[in-house]
Amino acid sequence: MSEFNPDDFETDFWKEAEVRAGWDDLEPGVVLRSRPVTITKEIIQRYARSIGDENPLYFDEAFAKSTRFGGLIAPPSIHALFLFACTGHDHFMRTPGTINMGQNWWLHRPVRPGDTIALEARCLDKLIRKGNTFAIHDNVFRNQAGEVVCSGRGWTMRPY
């Protein structure tokens, strides 16, 4: 998979939608293709602004240095971004109509500007409940030192 370029991200999730795994094709436990992404201060700050969070730990280097964090960090929900930035256009999470039902993340350590985050992502399980199809997503995010920064699961209702 090519390197992540925020200006070159394919935003049309309808495009080549047929190549993505439908519920029948999901193979629980199989790790999916992903790419490491180096996160810049600019990408972190755009994300923080989009959620209206102006915490100085994301913006004010001198302040952040004076805290126990020792420098700028990213909001803990930044992993929302890696779910898409680290995966390819063929990842089933991009399927139009994928509805997020719930999410749990354990936060081991903060993400910092300049970190290169790799995502180990898979469908861990799939089920049918009340006539609807669901997938359980299992995600482990590691930094360039190989340290786990975040791990957790989500579950989505599948359109097909």
Binding site: F13, W14, R49, L81, F84, A85, R94, G97, T98
Partner: peptide
């Protein structure tokens, strides 16, 4: 949020 998180689902 879609632009910042790269989640452009038509939803």
């Amino acid at each position: 949020f879609a632009a910042a998180s790269f989640d452009h689902n038509p939803l």
